[in-house]
Design a protein around this nucleic acid. Sequence first.
DNA 1: GAAGAGTAGATTTTT
DNA 2: TCTACTCTTC
Length: 675
Amino acid sequence: MSTQLKSLLNPEQYEAATNLEGPLLIIAGAGSGKTRVITYRITEMLNQGINQSSILALTFTNKAAREMAGRVKELVGRKLPQLTVSTFHSFGVQILKKHITLLGWRENFSIYDTNDQRSLIKECARELKWSLEYLDFGHCMSTFSRIKTRRSKWSDPEIDDSLQPLYEEYQSHRKLYNALDFDDLIRLPIDLFQQHPQVLEEYRKRYKYIMVDEFQDTSIQQYEMMKLLADGSRNICVVGDDDQSIYSWRGANFDNIRNFERDFPELREIKLEQNYRSTGTILDAANHLIKNNKNRKIKALWTGGDGGKPIELYQPQDERAEARFICDMIQTLNLKEQIHYHDISILIRTNALARGIEEELMARNLPYRITGGTSFFERPEVKDMISYLRCLANPDDDISLLRIMNTPRRGIGKKTLEHMTELAQSQGMSLYGAMQALVLANDSPIGKRARADIEDFLELISEFRPKLLSGKDLAQSLRALIAKIDYWGHLVGEHPNNERVAKFKLRNVELFTSSLEQWEKDPDNLSPSVFNYLNRITLAGKDDDDSEEGKVNLMTIHSAKGLEFDVVFIAGVEENIIPHQRSLEENDAGSYEENMEEERRLFYVALTRAKMKLYLTSCQQRKVMRDLMSMTMSPFIEEIPEKLIDIKEPDTEISEEEAHNYFELMKKKFAAVEE
DNA sequence: GAAGAGTAGATTTTT
DNA sequence: TCTACTCTTC
């Protein structure tokens, strides 16, 4: 195998793939065959007789995890059920699923996403009788996150310590509801390892070989977790590229590369600098751009390939012209150069930019796939279903309970809720607990009718809870539940004059149910419990339609990391978009200069996704929220040498007046002919 | 307790 | 433009 491997990899790649023992730092430039090295490295381990269950590969996104697992399977040619390839967050859930009771939590915990978190903060603020008007949730959540991940303390000068009571309230509510937020998924396993060394020992014994991909984007917490696990065997391999660090706003810290060098001084370092992906032109442009960043490891990415075509920059009139241009180009490329749709990608800085482009793609019947953005799972009707499932799994989950308690309307209104909240607050129980107490109480403060309504609701929960917890026929049970609560009737009632909307929503509910069914019937799925399903969808979102080939990819630059395409369009290459205006504001993630460097890295990531051809578009005008803004080209364009980029003249559009005059002229001409 | 009208605010990136 | 929340009325 090893000789064969030698012919498949270049010397540095070979080194990286075959050095299995001891700490290893791989600095892998864009397109240097990083994924290839990792997958071959895992294969090499298996070939050397290392047990698949001893291998742990941690990635940053679910997409990366899926892809890595898929490629290894393909290389090895068999299924590897004991191999752990997972994101940090999912791995955290896995650990907590087994051991969370040691930390004083109950099983079947809920995981709160950003929206749930927001609702909970709102709830807490209400309870503290704070005015919601001036409460900035973004600020709250980022502060809470800093405190929780111990990046900051309340006494730190940059921290708004007036939020501390709210934080305490938030924390105690989560405990009461048995609900974890994303930060907990990393933080609690660390606590567990520190408080229960025997558990840590168990994991160290199992995972003898650890690999971390996209290491430049790990947070201090994730690094800590990784270090705890690796400190037994010290067979730890991290792969990263400081030039592609684009998540500092989420606590990613590329100082981790330095920390790694400090904590594992015996490490071996390998640099992969040959780029196999892009043409010379693209690489040259990217290198010139990134050179402007001061805070980076020196690297010289080179390619043996030829120059390739110049980068083209177009300046359409506005975002609609931009969408039309991109679609025209895609159709031409597909027709004349036989480029497959799935080898083309349109990259955008913000999700909001997707809409206009999506509309045009749709109008032309161009098949496309959109990654990220407002997820299917955030649609109100789907969220209802999720909340039902969550409540059945964990009735103490107040945030979900609040959502479904009166959806469809069952007479549990504001007044009743007030009573329940009061009771729950004074007794330190969840709303569900309060409901049970109210029904049992003799001197109940609520009316007979409301009491009967609550009873009905509790009955519903106790009827379906065992069905859902049985782990069998989940979709079937959910369908029964939907019928029982007459959700269709509810939808029709909500949209009295619009059956189409109601039907659309019902279709989404059905889509959701069948996605659950598919997941549960998947033979590779070893434990199809509601709990696992819920975790999966909050952590991973909708199943990517990876199977659906032949579609143009539309996504943010962030979600394009790690991917490559023959042709890449970058839309909205304008000042205030790339770099993004709000990202530059000095904030707790960094200074203006640091943020500018991160935006530059982001643009670098975007450029280096392209293999053959890059098109950039910079609109002259753009509709931002309601008003039309005049736009200028991104300052990053100037950092790319002129000879590499072909800047087209701005498109001129016929103004309405000119068009009018033209038609008048034509009319006269025709009139003249008729005479 | 429910429904409808009216109003204010919102778009940076993801687990 | 759209959504989420508040206020008013039935």
